[in-house]
Design a protein around this nucleic acid. Structure first.
Lengths: 204, 204
DNA sequence: CCTGTTTTGGAGAGGCCCCTCTATTTAATT
DNA sequence: AATTAAATAGAGGGGCCTCTCCAAAACAGG
């Protein structure tokens, strides 16, 4: 009952990822995406009502893919919260190594992907992901120290921001990650969470 | 012998900082900079031969200002390399607190400031700064552990990247830095450095 | 084969931006 | 007062980009 699609949405998104990895999110123009597939611009607009909608989808697909693995890594060390934290930190680096172009996107913020112009549903998806990460961090926080565990922002630093920053330096200049990057991330996360075990925190 | 200047270069740069802090480096257009001062576009081109030259100057002025203070902080703890490292890490946060708009620039890379199109002298200035930072890190590295000191990338992480990442989360959403951010940066830097080298860890 | 629906294909309007170019203003010097 | 060099002032060309719109194409079901 209808002409079969020739370019589906995900192919446009793939092209957009490529463009952004090469020259930043601003290089994702509707014309450039179309040209990358040899498609007319109308076909892009047939899938995405506006540039902001395409940018939103590129960002959300990437971030949700990343978060999925991150949550899985956290659940891995299900008995030991310190092992879970280490696994999560290591995952950030390992995922970036496996998906260098997507990692490069992640290092830009959602703001660079025109978040201010996103359609409402996309904003909600982003907020939902953010909320789930926050919950996971809070849970980890609680599991780490029944009383006087490290503050939430310290945990966030250890299991997300710090590993991402290890990745940033290399990805931003198009270099491969050094072999020991995962180990550096995991070890640093443990250090930040409290050197030895639960009870002994440095004199504070 | 000549008409006195009405807009000097630094005022254009100030306007550019404001624009970039509000909406990213791509918001620095020659037209927007001119409009911010009520100047005609020709006056901007009278000071800067091209947009790339203006972006380079905005970036370099900010980065060199930042680095100056960072070097000074490093020299402060001249006897004790650990104290120097802590001071440097703390400085990153303190400087960002004092200069939130400039800090927001720093969190973008030079690539976002059209580095690929910079004139040759600007590129050299950037490389020179980069080199000096590398030297300082290497020196700190050597001072920290005569034998088996922490690797250079761990030191870089501790005294630059990690503090910057603490700043990033807040600055990117336009929030003020929390009061304990400096302490978090300093303490985390010591934790990261302590594990690799010295035996007297967390004695403080 | 015909009909209906989805999709492709592509032209073009309107807007912003980079940059060029010329004319004019301004003040110190002669 | 005349001269001169620096600086302002602003119009406009050329290019890219977003988005609209319409016609043609391709297939599924009757």
């Amino acid at each position: 009952m209808a002409r079969p699609p020739r370019y589906d949405a995900s192919r446009f998104l793939d092209a957009a990822v490529e463009l952004a990895a090469a020259a930043g999110p601003s290089a994702i123009s509707m014309a450039a995406v179309a040209k990358a597939l040899g498609a007319p611009s109308g076909s892009v607009y047939h899938r995405f009502p506006a540039r902001a909608a395409l940018l939103a989808e590129v960002w959300l697909r990437t971030v949700e893919n990343f978060q999925e693995g991150w949550f899985a890594a956290l659940r891995m060390g299900d008995g030991d919260p310190r092992a879970a934290a280490r696994a999560a930190a290591v995952h950030v680096v390992a995922w970036s190594r496996a998906h260098p172009r997507e990692a490069s996107l992640l290092l830009y913020g959602s703001a660079e992907f025109a978040r201010d112009d996103w359609p409402e549903p996309a904003v909600r998806r982003a907020e939902e992901g953010h909320r789930r990460v926050g919950e996971a961090v809070a849970g980890l926080c609680a599991a780490l120290g029944a009383e006087a565990g490290p503050a939430a922002d310290r945990v966030t630093l250890a299991v997300i921001d710090m590993p991402l920053t290890i990745v940033r330096r290399h990805v931003r200049r198009g270099q491969e990650l050094p072999a020991h990057a995962e180990e550096l991330a995991g070890e640093s996360a443990l250090l930040l969470l409290g050197a030895g075990g639960q009870q002994e925190r440095r004199s504070r």
